[in-house]
Nucleic acid binder design. Structure first.
Ligand SMILES: [Mn+2]
Ligand SMILES: [Mn+2]
Ligand SMILES: [Zn+2]
Ligand SMILES: [Zn+2]
Lengths: 131, 131
DNA sequence: AGTATATATAGTAATCATTCCTATTATTAT
DNA sequence: ATAATAATAGGAATGATTACTATATATACT
């Protein structure tokens, strides 16, 4: 008797992944993997950091979130629509803003013969809190 | 007999630092610390990687170069004037462009009450070589 | 509902870039 | 030339991220 199973791996449900997705979706703070990890431990005490990293990567691949780099460390953003960031060098906060319109993409194409996929902009400075 | 020396440390000349400065100044490729290290070894075979890092940091502080982050890894740029970058995701090349004018800085200030120090923009895409 | 199969996990080790530490070397004011 | 100390080489330590693996879990099929 022969049983045939699917050849290509399907993504299975996991409580860990769902928890991680909800955590990232619930904040505007662009959290680090470690922050997501400590939050996830509240509901899944035995979750491991590796699981957090693996699923954050997975969720990026499926388009549920995007990774942004703050200096050398990765932060995760539920907002996958094009937008920019204000980075406060006093408190480290990273805030969403929308500065670049669609026009700049076609500008770049014309000027530099470069196939544009994404435009990343971060404004470094000091936020209102510090004055 | 009492001898008084300066209390505050002055920066001394070092062949290592001069070599590192020249290496960074000689390329438009936005090299990594490791690339600078392997280049430096040609003229100073016993130079250590720690010395490269320490001096790159020092040279940034004195305004001789700036650090840019390509994902999570640091690259060094002799061009300290405001400019932007095209990042090719095929070959990894990072190229200089000038896209943002001064106007955008004052725009940000008006819109977001944020004291702007620097605007970092990277355009991700594919360069001419790949078609 | 029970079983088979493969995916996902926890826990831990490994990796990689970067920083730190320290005995020795090199620069520079006198 | 000497003394003071900044800078270095070499290696250890760190911190974020990834890789490995035995076990647990989800799910397709009886
Ligand atoms: Mn954002
Ligand atoms: Mn540049
Ligand atoms: Zn702030
Ligand atoms: Zn290219």
């Amino acid at each position: 008797m022969i049983t045939i199973y699917t050849i290509f791996s399907a993504m299975r449900f996991s409580h860990q992944r769902e928890t991680i997705r909800k955590i990232v979706n619930s904040t505007n703070s662009h959290p680090t993997a470690d922050w997501v990890f400590s939050r996830a431990k509240r509901s899944i005490p035995k979750i491991s950091l590796g699981t957090v990293y693996r699923n954050l990567k997975r969720l990026e691949k499926t388009g549920d979130l995007r990774t942004i780099y703050d200096g050398s460390i990765a932060r995760y953003d539920w907002n996958t629509k094009p937008h920019d960031h204000l980075k406060c060098k006093e408190c480290g906060d990273l805030m969403d803003v929308h500065l670049l319109d669609e026009g700049i993409r076609s500008d770049v194409k014309k000027k530099y013969k470069f196939a544009v996929d994404d435009v990343k902009m971060t404004i470094i400075g000091t936020c209102q809190k510090h004055k």
